[in-house]
Structures are given as C-alpha cells and as structure tokens.
Amino acid sequence: MARQDETPAHGPIRTCVGCRQRAAKRELLRVTAGTDANGQPAVVPDPTGTAPGRGAHLHPTPDCYDLAVRRKAFTRALRLEGGRSAAPVGEYVAARPAVNPLDQTRNWSNSS
C-alpha cells in the first residue's frame, strides 16, 4: 500500500473544474487569473503550467469548458472576487484539435 504523501507512478492527479473528474495533470489544461489581449482581468490558459499564482485544471474540451462556465467554477477555484471573462480559455480550447481523451501520448503543453 502506498503512503498518502506519495504520488502514483503515472504522476500527479488533478480534478477538472468542468466535469469534476480526476485525471493526470498532464491531460489537463491549467488556467490562471490574468489579463486578456485588451488588458482586462480574465481567466487565461496556462498550457506550460508555469504562470505564478493559483491555478485550476480543465480538460481542454468544449464540453468541460462549457460546464465550468455554467457552474462558475473558474471564479470559485481561483478564489476570484466578482466574475471574470473566461473567453481566452474558450478561444484556446476551440482552437485545439479534437483528440481522443484515451490517447495518453498527447502532451498539451508541448503542442503547437
């Protein structure tokens, strides 16, 4: 039996703020509080996972994005005051090619 402080062999596990299912961190898109292209406060994608501050994780699919927006999950998970636009995340997710979620070889942070 593994100790609680040990991570599984396949890496850290995170929960998608959209569908609330647990998945390997590498399968999810990290999002953070930041600014959009116009300098307005927004929830923005962090595909490299290197932005400072609190982050939330999301399956990079339109379905999970829509669920997260409907449930106001970004505001709650990032502990933000008031609503912020999540449009930059929606644009990022919409621009991603459709990928079978069972395909474990895809690495979101290194794809172009």
Rank of each mutant, 00 (worst) to 15 (best):
R106C: 03
A51F: 14
Q4S: 12
Q4P: 05
V17K: 00
P41H: 04
R84L: 15
C19L: 01
G49R: 06
P45K: 00
C16E: 02
T48N: 09
A73I: 02
T35V: 12
G18K: 06
G55S: 04
N107W: 11
R79W: 15
M1S: 12
G55Q: 05
G34S: 03
R26C: 11
C16A: 04
R96F: 15
I13F: 01
P41Y: 06
G90F: 11
H59M: 11
A33N: 06
R79G: 14
R30V: 09
D36K: 05
A87K: 10
P60E: 02
R70K: 06
E6K: 03
S112P: 08
P8A: 03
P45H: 02
D5C: 08
L80S: 05
P88Y: 13
R20S: 09
D66M: 11
C64E: 00
S111I: 10
G55F: 09
G82K: 03
M1V: 08
R54M: 15
P52Q: 06
L78N: 00
D36T: 04
T75K: 07
P45N: 02
N38S: 14
P45W: 01
R76T: 09
N107V: 12
M1F: 15
P12A: 13
T61A: 13
G90A: 13
C19Y: 00
Q40G: 13
K25Q: 06
D46C: 01
D5N: 08
S109Q: 12
V93Q: 02
G18R: 05
V93I: 03
G39V: 08
P60H: 05
K72Q: 11
R71C: 12
Q21F: 12
Y65N: 06
C16L: 01
T105A: 15
G39P: 10
C64I: 01
K25S: 05
L58M: 08
L102A: 05
R84V: 04
A94C: 14
A87H: 14
L58R: 04
A77C: 13
G55T: 04
P12N: 09
K25W: 13
D36M: 07
A33H: 09
P101K: 03
A2H: 14
K72W: 08
R54C: 15
R3P: 01
Y92N: 00
N38I: 09
T61Y: 12
L102I: 06
R96T: 09
C19E: 00
R76S: 03
W108G: 12
G90P: 03
A77S: 13
A24N: 10
V93F: 01
E91D: 15
A33K: 03
P101R: 02
E27A: 14
C16N: 01
A87G: 12
D46Q: 01
V89P: 01
T48Q: 14
T105R: 10
D46W: 00
R22M: 11
A73Y: 01
T32C: 10
V43F: 14
G55A: 03
C16D: 01
A23D: 09
R14F: 13
R106T: 03
L102C: 05
D46V: 00
S112K: 06
A94S: 14
M1R: 05
T48H: 04
S112N: 08
T75P: 06
A73G: 01
Y65M: 09
Y92R: 00
D66F: 13
L58I: 08
P47I: 02
N110C: 12
A51P: 15
A98R: 09
D66I: 07
A98F: 15
T75G: 14
R71D: 15
